[in-house]
């Protein structure tokens, strides 16, 4: 009985001491602690995923590590999903979320965003040679993920193209991997989300998949930051712009999206740089 009590008390103590948040301006807190907590995805290839050695790698991971390095602090990596990436920032569980998150106005009402650090657009992935344009998907079922901008965009697209059952034809999964599994199995005709994610998954099985049609929307990615904390936002923005200026950004970009990689995605835009 006594052992149990000690065990329970110790457990409670550990939980309280390790998990209590210190509220306050993020910049000072990060600098004092020497650690920045970054939320990243686990299912987005090549944004942030687990490789065959179970290491967490990807474009977002490298960007986050570079930002932390420039701030002169260590990085604590936190797993986030489409569902948790915004809630974590709201709750103060993480200091920034580098989680291929599109900067939208609805999201900007609850958290803040850095400048755009990546330019993506939404497309539809389908088996090679079966579909040629968006119109071909009318009346077909399309997979996407719950809680993403892709979900809203694809519903709007199907509605515009005149699909009366657009609500039922869009199947929203919890994760990217589940959507891809559904596509592979054939239970959906296509999978629609940001094109780099689609490329990442398609590259796992070269020659079997293709992107159909034009971009459905533009998806500017921003780093999610706590609301109303401009000192912290400035620090992140300056770090991103410095990375762009001295070429580190393009190095990381080419490592993951360059012509020699399976995920080739040409850089078409330019990060906003303030003089």
């Amino acid at each position: 009985m006594r052992l149990w009590k000690i065990f329970a008390l110790a457990l409670a103590a550990i939980m309280l001491s390790s998990q209590l948040a210190v509220a306050g301006p993020t910049y000072d807190r990060v600098m004092n602690a020497g650690v920045v907590r970054v939320g990243m995805m686990t299912d987005s290839i090549p944004g942030a995923f687990f490789n065959d050695k179970n290491e967490w790698v990807g474009f977002d991971v490298d960007i986050a590590e570079e930002v932390a390095k420039r701030l002169g602090v260590d990085i604590e990596r936190v797993q986030a999903t489409n569902r948790t990436r915004i809630t974590f920032v709201q709750q103060g569980r993480i200091d920034m979320s580098v989680a291929n998150m599109t900067h939208t106005r609805e999201r900007d009402r609850v958290i803040d965003f850095s400048i755009t650090y990546f330019f993506d657009g939404q497309k539809i992935l389908a088996p090679v040679g079966q579909y040629t344009s968006h119109e071909d998907f009318v009346g077909k079922r399309i997979a996407t993920m719950q809680g993403t901008t892709s979900e809203i965009n694809i519903k709007n697209l199907l509605k515009e193209l005149g699909d009366p059952n657009y609500e039922r034809n869009v199947i929203s999964f919890q994760r990217e991997s589940e959507a891809f599994q559904a596509l592979k199995m054939g239970s959906v005709a296509g999978w629609s989300t940001d094109s780099t994610i689609l490329l990442g998954y398609a590259a796992q099985e070269p020659g079997k998949w293709e992107l159909v049609g034009d971009f459905i929307s533009e998806e500017p990615y921003g780093i999610g930051l706590p609301q109303d904390d401009s000192a912290w936002r400035d620090a992140i923005n300056f770090a991103l712009q410095d990375m762009w200026k001295d070429g580190t950004y393009m190095e990381i970009y080419n490592k993951w999206y360059g012509p020699d990689t399976p995920y080739y995605f040409p850089m078409t835009d330019k990060i906003e740089v303030w003089p």
């Binding site: 686990t42 299912d43 995923f49 687990f50 490789n51 065959d52 797993q79 986030a80 999903t81 569902r83 948790t84 919890q174 994760r175 990217e176 991997s177 589940e178 891809f180 599994q181 592979k184 796992q204 099985e205």
Partner: peptide, 23 residues
């Protein structure tokens, strides 16, 4: 797994995601 805890089901999902062809 719905909130992303590394338990068995989630690890299986991650593996499945990587290996792709052995569900």
């Amino acid at each position: 797994f719905v909130i992303g805890v590394m338990e068995l089901t989630y690890v299986a999902q991650i593996l499945n995601n990587r290996l792709m062809i052995y569900p």
